[in-house]
């Protein structure tokens, strides 16, 4: 979005750049996005830095109606990914041909530009996924 808040981006850099999650010290449950309290009742959550970079596609869609940040990138392939170890994340699927994707496709995490604040503003980066085989 035009003039996206810089602090809003900056404070989420650990999550956007390297999937820093929270893990419960009591029961081991992992929260991404990070949570403050575990479902088990414990408030003792520690940083889990960082989640695995490989996983499998659970489901995906090709999105043609996109917001202003993504007008020049449409269609976007977006999906739900299960990372090795079981934590799931949603993200864009890049470097991919939709007809070669399917639930179970092996994907890896990549570091990409996500949004750009116009011609003069900030370039915002973050994780995306791509199939291991093109």
């Amino acid at each position: 979005m035009r003039h996206e808040s810089v602090p809003m981006y900056w404070r989420n850099i650990p999550q956007y750049y390297r999937l820093v999650a929270k893990r419960c010290r009591q029961c081991g449950a992992v929260y991404f996005p990070p949570a403050l309290r575990c479902r088990c009742g414990s408030a003792e959550l520690e940083d889990y830095d960082e989640l695995p970079h490989e996983g499998r596609l659970v489901e995906y869609t090709v999105l043609y109606q996109v917001g202003t940040d993504f007008l020049k990138q449409k269609p976007l392939i977006v999906g739900l990914v299960e990372l090795n170890g079981g934590v799931r994340a949603v993200g864009q699927i890049v470097d991919a041909q939709p007809d070669r994707l399917a639930p179970g496709t092996r994907v890896e995490l990549v570091f990409r530009r996500v949004a750009v604040d116009g011609r003069h503003g900030l370039i915002m980066y973050g994780y995306k996924f791509r199939p291991v085989q093109p």
């Binding site: 020049k72 990138q73 890049v94 470097d95 570091f111 990409r112 530009r113 370039i123 980066y125 995306k128």
Partner: peptide, 8 residues
């Protein structure tokens, strides 16, 4: 790719 640059 469109979303790649020297940083990524």
């Amino acid at each position: 790719a469109l979303d790649e640059d020297a940083v990524t």
